[in-house]
Write a protein that binds this DNA or RNA. Sequence first.
DNA 1: CGGATATATTTCATTTATGAATTATTCAGA
DNA 2: TCTGAATAATTCATAAATGAAATATATCCG
Lengths: 174, 174
Amino acid sequence: MRNAEGDGGSGSFAEVERYIEVTRQRLPGYPHERVKLARLVTHVQKRQSDLSNAVLKRHGLNYVKYTALMMMYGTPGRTLTPSTLSEGTGEKPANITRICDELLQQGLIERHPSAEDRRRVDLHLTREGERLIEKLQPELWQVWDEIYGCFNAAELRQLTRLLRKPLARLDASG
Amino acid sequence: MRNAEGDGGSGSFAEVERYIEVTRQRLPGYPHERVKLARLVTHVQKRQSDLSNAVLKRHGLNYVKYTALMMMYGTPGRTLTPSTLSEGTGEKPANITRICDELLQQGLIERHPSAEDRRRVDLHLTREGERLIEKLQPELWQVWDEIYGCFNAAELRQLTRLLRKPLARLDASG
DNA sequence: CGGATATATTTCATTTATGAATTATTCAGA
DNA sequence: TCTGAATAATTCATAAATGAAATATATCCG
C-alpha cells in the first residue's frame, strides 16, 4: 500500500544497474563502475535530502537552512560568514544570501557587519535558533538512522575515508 | 598520485569536519559519523553535478536531462515511460514532464501514447538523441575520471557495494 | 601614495524543482 | 457490470538555486 514499487524486487536502483549494463555493452570503453557510483551518490543524496526535508518542513526549515544553522552551532562563538557557509554547504553565494534572509526573518540568526573586514558579514545564531536546533535533533537522528543505520562502525569509517578522496582531489585541481 | 590528501589540510571539507566535531561535544548522543557521511554525500553529489553540468551546458543539456537520455539509450528499444524515468533519476514526476518537454523541443526524444496502457506515455530516443549521446561520451568520461579517478577497482567495488545498502533499506520502508 | 586586482556579498533575471490539484485510465472486488 | 481505489501523467503556482553583473572593501605592488 505504501511503497510505489513493491513488485520490482530489490528497489529502483536495480533498474538503474540494468540500463548501465546495456549501455556498457553498446559503448566500448564506457566507465560503468564510475557511472554506477555517480548514480548511487545522486540517489543517496536525494533520499537523504527528501527525508530530512520532510522532517524539517514542519519546523519551517529545509536541508540547506538547517545545515547553515548547524554550521553556526558548531562554530566557536556561533558566528561565521556567508562565504564559509557557501563552502561548507556547497551552495552558491547567491543562494546563501537568500537562505540567510529567510533565517533572519525567522529570527534564527542575526546579521552584523564584520569588525575586522568590512566586506564581510557576521552571521550569528540567536538563542532561538539554538533552541530550535536542539529541539529538532531527535527527529533528525531518526532520519540518519533510517538511512545510515544499515552501516556498522567499520563501514562508516570506510565510507568516510573513501568519500573524502574525490573532494580532496577536486579541491586541489580547481 | 597527485592528490594533496592531508586531512588537516586545505580542502573545504576539513572545515566541515571541524564544526561537526564541536557539535559532537555540545550535543550528547550526536551521531557524528552518520552526519559526516551525509555531508560528504552532499558535497560529492554537488561536485559531480556541477562538473558535468559545465560540460553538458555546452550541448544544451544538464545532468538530469542527460541521465534521462542515458536511461533510454540503455533500454532495449530505447523507449521507456516518465515514471521509470522518475524512479531512475530520483526527480519528481512534475519535473520529468518539464524535462521531457524540453528534450522533445530539442528533437532528442519522441513522445507517443502507449499501446498497452493508455495512461502511459512512451518516450523514445531519436536518432539525433543517440548521436548527441555518443558525441558527448568522451567529455563526460573525463569528468568521471576527474572525480572518481582517485579510486582503484577494489575501492569502486567497495563503495558501490556499500552505497547500495541505504537505498535497498529505504525502498523497503517507504 | 595610488591604481590595478582580488575578495565578500548582494541584486536581479532566469533556470530548475517541487507540491497539490486535475485528468485519464486501469484494476480489484462486491 | 459497476463503483471505488490505485496508477500515470500533466498543469499550474510557488519554492529553491544559479549565473552574471553590481557594489563595496581590502590587498598588492609599482
